[in-house]
């Protein structure tokens, strides 16, 4: 019986083997490489020749004044992105759901999904131009309409985090509506018919049927988002920040990048990365467990 099974299953093992090898080399080997966080790693000496220093790099990073700011920035920017990233797509989905003219609805969807597929490099290039204080159309428009003084959106510490949140919502809200539109279609139409008979207008129906009907999906998306709270958006911030906004705009991932490739402190960068990976792992696992328990959500 055992032999027969093995013969039947052998092709399956063979199929999975190449993928498994790639994952072992490019995902698991780096996990083993995390030990350099506990070494004074020198590339020429390699992983086995470098000195062990225990938790020294963690203590060093903990003592750096900017570390605390970086963690605070990460949480602040992430938290605002989560809130705005829930409110805007949900509102848009509810409004789109009211549209009866299919052509109009399709046209709006086509346009608002588009930015999701463009990379942050492209979009940053566009946004840097638009947000420029001297020649950008946004400042020109504000000046023309309100006589406002030009605002240096990407160079002003107090503006920068909010610009990140706004532009992130701008890129992703359209795509985010998809899941809520799907949730809306699964609401039983008989509920609306009953509500009409009871004399509820469209607003009351939205309040008492549509929003409660979407509630499970909203909670699910929120849970999954909180698991990712340490990812404040490397691609976006790396392409738009500059030294004058480090104080409010620097996040864990950009910090790790600069420690590694600008300061060449490979071990310190790895220590910060390891810290982030562990906390993220716990949060993401927890969010999946909660999502599984309460919404029966499974990734596969």
């Amino acid at each position: 019986m055992g032999k027969k099974n093995w013969r039947l299953e052998r092709p399956l093992h063979l199929m999975i083997l190449p993928g498994l090898l790639f994952v072992l080399i490019f995902s698991y080997a780096p996990m083993a490489g995390l030990i350099i966080a506990f070494q004074d790693f020198i590339p020429t000496k390699g992983m086995f020749g470098s000195h062990w220093v225990g938790l020294e790099h963690f203590k060093y990073v903990y003592g750096l004044p900017q570390t605390r700011a970086v963690v605070a920035n990460t949480l602040f920017i992430s938290f605002m992105k989560i809130v705005a990233g829930l409110v805007v797509p949900i509102t848009t989905a509810i409004l789109l759901n009211e549209i009866r003219k299919q052509f109009f609805k399709r046209a709006i969807q086509t346009v608002i999904y588009l930015p999701h597929f463009l990379s942050w490099v492209i979009l940053s290039g566009i946004l840097i131009d638009i947000l420029s204080p001297s020649s950008g159309i946004l400042n020109q428009g504000l000046g023309f309409l309100f006589g406002a003084k030009p605002i240096f959106f990407l160079g002003d510490q107090s503006w920068f985090p909010y610009v990140m949140v706004t532009t992130d919502v701008w890129k992703e809200f359209g795509f985010g509506t998809i899941i809520y539109l799907a949730a809306l279609t699964s609401i039983n139409p008989m509920l609306y018919e009953a509500a009409v008979i009871d004399g509820a207008n469209r607003w009351k129906q939205t309040l008492h049927i549509t929003i409660p009907g979407m509630f499970p999906v909203i909670v699910l998306m929120m849970t999954l988002a909180i698991g990712n709270i340490l990812n404040a958006g490397f691609d976006q911030i790396f392409n738009m920040y500059n030294p004058s906004v480090y104080e409010t705009g620097d996040i864990l991932d950009t910090y790790v990048y600069r420690l590694a490739f600008v300061n060449a402190q490979l071990s310190v960068a790895t220590a910060v990365g390891l810290f982030k990976s562990i906390i993220s792992f716990l949060l993401i696992s927890l969010s999946y467990i909660i999502a599984y328990r309460f919404a029966n959500y499974r990734i596969f």
């Binding site: 995902s27 490489g33 590694a260 990365g273 792992f281």
Partner: peptide, 16 residues
């Protein structure tokens, strides 16, 4: 799936 939850991060991957 574990690789979706945990990663070696920037520097170790670069070194590999």
């Amino acid at each position: 799936v574990f690789t979706m939850l945990f990663s070696g991060g920037l520097v170790p991957t670069y070194l590999i």
